[in-house]
Simulated scan of single mutants.
Amino acid sequence: MDFARIVEAVGQAVDLVGVAIIVLGALTATVLFVQRLREGGTPQEAYRSYRQGLGRAILLGLELLVAGDIIRTVAVAPTFTSVGVLALIVLVRTFLSFSLEVELGNRLPWQARRGGDVTG
């Protein structure tokens, strides 16, 4: 097996893990949402927790999908076109990640958390 095939297989494996995290995270968040509702939690609290759990799963999955794209694109003879496509993919996924981060935290990433904690 040559280097290019190994790198492609590793990139696909990282992509697979990213997709699995998104799917499993969505399923887990949904199960927890239903469980909270059944246990008598308020719909607003259950919904907020559901959105946060789902958002975290999507964020982590997106990070792995970006890593898989980087591995496959730049590890083996990158061309200007392939690097340009990668840049666009990373730009879109970074925007999605940023938007999710803002949505989950109700603040911009560089703003201090409520309670005065400035650590991430």
Rank of each mutant, 00 (worst) to 15 (best):
residue 16 L to E: 04
residue 19 V to N: 06
residue 19 V to L: 11
residue 21 I to A: 06
residue 23 V to D: 01
residue 23 V to C: 02
residue 24 L to M: 08
residue 26 A to E: 03
residue 27 L to V: 13
residue 27 L to M: 11
residue 31 V to E: 03
residue 31 V to Q: 02
residue 32 L to Q: 09
residue 33 F to H: 07
residue 34 V to G: 01
residue 36 R to D: 11
residue 37 L to N: 01
residue 38 R to I: 07
residue 38 R to P: 00
residue 38 R to E: 09
residue 40 G to Q: 01
residue 43 P to H: 08
residue 43 P to A: 12
residue 44 Q to M: 11
residue 44 Q to W: 07
residue 44 Q to T: 14
residue 45 E to H: 14
residue 47 Y to N: 13
residue 47 Y to I: 06
residue 53 G to N: 06
residue 55 G to K: 08
residue 56 R to T: 04
residue 58 I to N: 07
residue 59 L to F: 09
residue 59 L to C: 12
residue 61 G to I: 00
residue 62 L to E: 12
residue 63 E to G: 15
residue 63 E to M: 15
residue 69 D to F: 13
residue 70 I to Q: 06
residue 72 R to M: 14
residue 75 A to W: 14
residue 82 S to D: 10
residue 83 V to D: 08
residue 85 V to Q: 03
residue 88 L to W: 11
residue 89 I to S: 13
residue 90 V to T: 15
residue 97 S to M: 14
residue 97 S to W: 11
residue 97 S to L: 12
residue 98 F to H: 08
residue 99 S to Y: 10
residue 101 E to R: 12
residue 102 V to R: 10
residue 103 E to G: 01
residue 104 L to H: 02
residue 104 L to D: 05
residue 105 G to V: 00
residue 105 G to E: 11
residue 108 L to Y: 08
residue 108 L to M: 11
residue 108 L to R: 09
residue 110 W to C: 02
residue 110 W to N: 06
residue 111 Q to K: 05
residue 114 R to A: 12
residue 117 D to W: 01
residue 119 T to N: 05
